[in-house]
């Protein structure tokens, strides 16, 4: 096996952990029971990935619960508040499409990341399927569902540039990955009668520095909630 790119495991592990937490916030709030279960299941898959990835770097609990905001290497996309259901689906579409393409490529490697990627890519395929079907249903649904879906897509678009920033330690053909991602998203949105957001993917004020530890304001509040129990009761167990 090739030596492990720890920085990469941290970046991908943080993506999975943070998105898992954001999806978990839907417990008790999802529009229907089936979706509550679906989002919780996707969250659980991501938490499983995060546990394996973070364990490649160090102690999973210490990394998840005792790091400060600036030490996290996740994308700013995954830390954004969950918003309404359409907003969450827009993020799921953007992220699961990216994660599937990335994991497909990583699965071809020969390091510890490849083992995880070839396992997780199958789960992520279901996540993407779920996001795609909801995008079609909301986009091609009522006037209100269409408008909310479009709003979610537009609002999160600015965070999608950072997604293709090369991760240290990974040999991935990023421009090709970006091209395929853009094609896939455009295809789904067209079928869903939605419009591909046209603004810049990055923006002056969203530096897109998640991989360098620069995060947006809502992330600090999310971490406070996520880490509060562990910090208040060190070593607590069920």
């Amino acid at each position: 096996m090739s030596p492990l790119p720890a920085s990469a495991a941290l970046a991908l592990g943080d993506d999975a952990l943070v998105l898992s937490h954001r999806l978990g916030e839907w417990a008790g709030y999802a529009p229907v029971l089936e979706e509550e279960l679906a989002l919780a299941n996707i969250s659980l898959d991501l938490l499983g990935q995060a546990r394996i990835l973070l364990s490649l770097v160090g102690d999973e609990d210490e990394l998840a619960y005792l790091r400060e905001e600036r030490a996290f290497r996740n994308l700013q996309l995954v830390e954004q508040p969950r918003g309404d259901f359409a907003h969450t689906i827009a993020r799921q579409l953007y992220f699961s499409s990216y994660q599937r393409l990335l994991y497909e490529e990583l699965a071809r490697g020969d390091d510890a990341l490849a083992e995880l990627a070839s396992k997780a890519v199958k789960e992520v395929a279901y996540h993407r399927d779920h996001a795609e079907h909801w995008t079609l249903r909301l986009g091609d649904g009522t006037a209100e569902s269409h408008q909310r879906m479009q709003q979610g897509l537009n609002a999160l678009w600015r965070y999608t540039d950072e997604v293709f920033e090369p991760i240290e330690g990974l040999s991935v053909d990023w421009p090709t990955l970006r091209e395929r991602w853009t094609e896939q998203i455009a295809h789904v949105l067209q079928q869903a009668t939605l419009t591909m957001p046209s603004g810049p993917q990055g923006d002056a004020w969203t530096a897109g520095g998640g991989r360098q530890g620069v995060h947006t304001e809502p992330f600090g509040r999310m971490l406070a909630e996520m880490q509060h129990l562990h910090r208040s009761h060190p070593g607590a167990a069920w």
Binding site: A38, A40, N41, H133
Partner: peptide, 13 residues
């Protein structure tokens, strides 16, 4: 198919 995810990740409803 009612939902792609059911009571556990491995099942659909």
């Amino acid at each position: 198919l009612l939902s792609r995810f059911s009571s556990t990740a491995c099942k659909a409803l």
